[in-house]
């Protein structure tokens, strides 16, 4: 693993990864097929799709039907990768994802783009703060909150052959680069990005870079923070979690999601049963989204490095 984080943005966008990796997967594996619901161009797939009509199916604006079709295709031996915005890819299709895919054992990969505040100018109607929570309730599902392009490429490749329903929540535009492109990822294994003694910061998605920034700020104040990127929210890497919770004695969980039911919930469920420690949350309060630039929304919903610093101090004070 190489961590290349220095606070600057990735030169590649997530769109670049989609438009490179999905065609590669289709080329390497004749069973891979990509389905979308009129948002192909939003993830850079339209041009390729137009040239590969057998492997790219535009279902139109009918997301539930798309997930049902993908599930049927899986039963015929295909490996469908489905995309829509996170709100549709979770709330709109969940009955199909739950029964037609999950319960019926039809293995599909679902990409929900623009998680949380990344929906920015599409606003509250398009802002999923609940998608992780929804998919966590699907038995056997894998739920991932992706932080950068190196990670996205890896999890896309691994998801197609993984059993069950895989939900990948990821932005479309660029993000702060965290990992070198040679980094290896294993679904279900968290990444220890920094060791520390005083507090554990568990983050996912866009909050990983902010956690690293917060750790730097804390270091300047003499506080030693461990940072874990828990990109697989389910199944969570409880060994890593318990190991660092034991070492530090308290934790902060940071995610671009409602604090109910997502990574915050997952961390607390496991720590409560294995190793209870004080935990603070840097996540969206029980609120709906709203419109605005992403940096405004991050401040509006309290998703900043400064909030992590404050929460870390609070967690330490509660030890």
């Amino acid at each position: 693993m190489s961590i290349v984080y220095n606070g600057s943005n990735d030169s590649k966008t997530f769109k670049d990864v989609f438009s490179t990796v999905i065609p590669q997967l289709c080329e390497k594996d004749p069973d891979v097929v990509y389905l979308d619901a009129d948002l192909m161009s939003c993830i850079g797939m339209l041009k390729w799709a137009e040239n590969n009509p057998d492997r790219a199916i535009n279902c139109g604006i009918a997301e539930a039907n798309m997930v049902g079709i993908a599930s049927g295709m899986a039963s015929a031996g295909m490996k469908p990768i489905v995309h829509s915005f996170g709100i549709f890819a979770s709330r709109r299709v969940f009955d199909q994802a739950f029964l037609s895919a999950g319960y019926a054992k039809n293995d599909i990969t679902v990409i929900g783009s623009d998680p949380g505040v990344c929906a920015a100018f599409n606003g509250g109607t398009h802002m999923p703060f609940e998608d992780t929570a929804i998919y966590r309730t699907l038995p056997g599902a894998t739920v991932m909150d992706v932080c950068d392009t190196a990670m996205l490429a890896a999890v896309l490749e691994q998801s197609k052959d993984r059993a069950g329903v895989k939900y990948i929540r990821v932005a479309r535009k660029n993000s702060v680069k965290v990992y070198g492109d040679d980094t290896e990822f294993e679904i279900g294994k968290g990444k220890l990005l920094k060791e520390g003694n005083d507090v554990l910061i568990v983050a996912s998605g866009i909050m990983v870079a902010k956690a690293l920034e917060a750790a730097k700020l804390l270091e300047a104040e003499g506080v030693s923070a461990a940072v874990v990127d828990m990109f697989t929210v389910k199944p969570i890497d409880f060994e890593l979690l318990v190991q660092w919770a034991e070492k530090t004695g308290c934790a902060v969980v940071a995610e671009n999601h409602n604090k109910i039911g997502g990574l915050c919930g997952a961390v607390c469920e496991f720590l409560a049963s294995r190793h209870p420690v004080p935990v603070e949350f840097v996540a969206v309060e029980d609120e709906f989204g709203e419109v605005g630039p992403q940096d405004y929304l991050e401040k509006r919903f309290g998703l900043t490095a400064e909030h992590i610093v404050e929460s870390a101090k609070m967690a330490i004070s509660r030890k």
Binding site: G68, I69, G72, A76, G77, D95, Q96, S100
Partner: peptide, 25 residues
Amino acid sequence: IDMTTGSLGQGTSLAVGIALGDKLK
């Protein structure tokens, strides 16, 4: 039994998917 059904409506999309999958195969 070729497909799990019971939540009404869902079998229709599933059947479309099976037919498409068979074609691709």
